[in-house]
Every structure is written in C-alpha cells, then in structure tokens.
Design a protein around this nucleic acid. Structure first.
Lengths: 211, 211
DNA sequence: CTTAAATTCTGAACAGTGTTAAGATATGCT
DNA sequence: AGCATATCTTAACACTGTTCAGAATTTAAG
C-alpha cells in the first residue's frame, strides 16, 4: 500500500485509511469555525465524508474525541512554551516570554484552548489520566523555569509552588478573559500581546525580593 | 388574588403565576447539579411541571434563559464584591478581600460562573448590552478600589487600568483553574480560600512601589 | 355582567443530535 | 485460498431545541 501521505488520491475508498486523524483535523477546523458549543460529531463525520456512526470505531464517544483533541492541544502548548523559553535569556526573561506565549497560544487556538479546560473531561479518579499528565507537563515548563530562577539568583520571595500557581493564574485568566468576555470582540493579536506583556511583567514584579 | 409568596399552594393551576422566576430557579439548580454542558431546557421545564414549549413565552430561547441567568449572577457577584470591600479596611486590604471574594464566588456558584463567561453570549455589537453592563459593574468595584488606593497613597506603580486588568486576570484565572482543571476534584472551600489569599497577596505585591 | 382581546399554557410536530445494533465491505493473516 | 478482524454503512432509538395551532385562563372594555 502507498504511504500515509496519499490521503486524497482515492477518496471513494470504503476504508478511509487514516480516518482517525482526518476526524481530528476536521474537528479542530469545525470547532474553530462555529465555536465549541455548537460543535457536532455528526458534522465532523460529514466533513470527513463518512457516516455518523463511523467515528465510533475510533473514539468511544464525542467526549473521547474532544478529550483526544485536548491532549494534543496540551502537547502543542508545551512545545510552544518550551520554544518561548529561549536559552539565551535569563530565567526571569524566560518567565515573561513563557507567560506571553501562553496567552498567545490561547488567542490563536481558541477552540482547542476551550476544550482543554472543561470540568467534564476531568477523569473520575486514579490511574495516570493522559489529559492530566499532558496538563502537568505544560505546567512543568513554567515551574522548572521558576526553579532555575531561584537557583541562579535568590530572587524569589515565596516558594516555587505558590509562584507557579500565581503566574499560571494570571496568564490563564487573561487568556479566558480575552476569549470569553466582550473584549474578545475588539481584541487583536497585537493588543492581546500587549496586554499579556503588561500583565505578566506586573505579576513577575510581585515575586521579586525587594532590595 | 393572593400575594406572590403563595407559589406552592395550588400547583395544579393552568396559569402558573410566576413561571419565569420558577424556571430561572430550576435552571440554576439543574446547572449546579448536572453541569453546564448537559444543561437542558426541557429538563428545566420538567422540573417546573410545565410543557417543553412553556419557557418560550418567557424567554426567546435557551440562550436567552442562560443570558438572564448570567446577568443575575453578575449582579450577585457585584454585591458580593461590595460586601467584601469593608469600609474599615485600608484600600489595599480591600483589594485583597475583593480578590478572595471573587474566587470564592466562583467556587460556590460554579455553574452560574461558567454561564457568565461564554463567548456565545457576547452580543453582536452596539447598544448597551445588559450582560456587558452587568460585567462592567462588577469590574468597577475592583477598579474603584484601585483608584482609591492610588489617591490615598501614591502606592501603585502602573496605571489603574493595567493594575485592574492584572488583578482581574489572577482571580479569574485561579477561579477557572479551580473549576475546570483536575484540581477541582480535590479542592475544598478552605483550600480554595487559602490559594486565593496567597495568589492575591503575591499579585498585589507586584503593584506596590518599592521604597 | 358580558364579551372581546390578550396572555399563558399544552400537544403535536419537525429537524437535528448522540449513540447503538446488525449487517456489508474491505484488509490482514495463515 | 479462506477466515478472522477491522472498518464502514444503514436504520433505528431516545432525546433535544424550537415552532405552531389551538385550549385555558386572565384582563380589559363596553
């Protein structure tokens, strides 16, 4: 058989070949188009030229599809944060860049970002939930940078966990405000970035030890 | 006819008497029970002992009902913040109390809080949208306190708008993290309050001028 | 008081949804 | 080759939001 690159060569095949990924991509597009609330599994199937029941051979149910999307999104966020954390900068500058990158990720992937944080997706309990792990991995980028900053310079007052929670809260809060409040109607990428910079810089000020 | 207090005296009346409020209350309960995603207008009607079409005589559609709920919730939030802002404290203490109150409001009214921030509810444009107004009113409690703090003591570095955005972001971020992340499974009212205090105190540190 | 108008509710219906079950079609293995 | 398995379709179920015609009730007008 041909490699997985040739997806659109023969679209009328009974077996799609790579339906799972096609569904995921269609789902991302749909969510970004019509929003998260009207998001429909049947429409996803429609866009993949497939019957409404087909997705159930690749996902347990609609929520499982969304869950998969959320996990992928967390991984993309993790790499985005790691990329923002350039080695050439000081830990404090890295913190600022990570914070801004978080907000920009939310702004540029609003639908996926909304899927990432839904109480309904939080697993019942126990077992290493992949979604939870992916979320912790993303947080670790921020957390580790804080640790590094503390080691290099004794610059932080409170302990790393509190600092992390606080910085995470600011950037996450600004992100959701930008997406879910009336601001979303007038916000642009530039204004979002500007707000992110201002807010993050202020927040970092709060964790510096006064000299 | 009797006063509006006697709601449950004659439950079999064709005309309910105060269906609109009954629907709103049933909706609040339902949302807090089964969450925001599975929230169903038909179930609301069912709980009000009324046909599925009855709500349409009091609300344009499901979204209009949710919108009404969100507006009410914003007003409740506003009074909660005003109550937290006790006159006896200094403006800075007031800021701290307001921030904590915000987080606790979210924790105690999770379903309503989620209804308050939904991109879908943001009106198309123009005209004084009551939801937007209610949101601004709530923000004003925080904003005015910042202004007062700046007047009493020249204690803030950045300007009030930036400070407000930053503080709003922290408390809003922590709120949604507490509600929508895996933390929600283990969080209690006490742990939430503790986190709120820590995070808000750190954030306020960031806006104090260094002496 | 009578009667017309307006309000509030019901019942039945429509399209659309998530999901399942039974069967058709293709793929992979031996 | 043939058999098991994975993948897809068709049909159906219960449920949803919403509309519409009409019944029950309240309000207002004569």
């Amino acid at each position: 058989m041909s490699s997985s690159i040739a997806i659109q060569t023969k679209p009328e095949r009974y077996h799609h070949g790579d339906l799972k990924n096609t569904l995921l991509e269609a789902a991302r597009e749909l969510a970004n188009e019509i929003g998260v609330d009207n998001f429909t599994l049947r429409e996803v199937a429609r866009r993949a030229n497939v019957s409404p029941a087909a997705p159930y051979h690749h996902f347990l149910d609609k929520q499982d599809l969304i869950r998969t999307l959320a996990i992928e999104a967390f991984r993309k966020l993790t790499t985005a944060l790691e990329q923002a954390k350039q080695k050439k900068h000081s830990p404090l500058e890295q913190l600022e860049h990570i914070g801004i990158a978080y907000v920009m990720f939310a702004y540029e992937h609003h639908a996926e970002f909304r899927f990432m944080f839904r109480r309904e997706l939080c697993a019942a309990a126990g077992e290493p939930d992949p979604l939870e792990v992916a979320g912790i991995d993303a947080q670790s980028v921020l957390y580790n940078t804080i640790l590094e900053a503390q080691v290099v310079k004794k610059i932080m007052t409170s302990d790393a966990k509190n600092i992390s929670l606080m910085l995470w809260s600011v950037v996450h809060g600004l992100s959701t405000i930008l997406l879910e409040s009336p601001i979303s109607k007038t916000a642009t990428a530039e204004s979002a970035k500007k707000m992110a910079r201002i807010v993050v810089q202020q927040a970092i000020q709060g964790i510096l030890s006064k000299e």
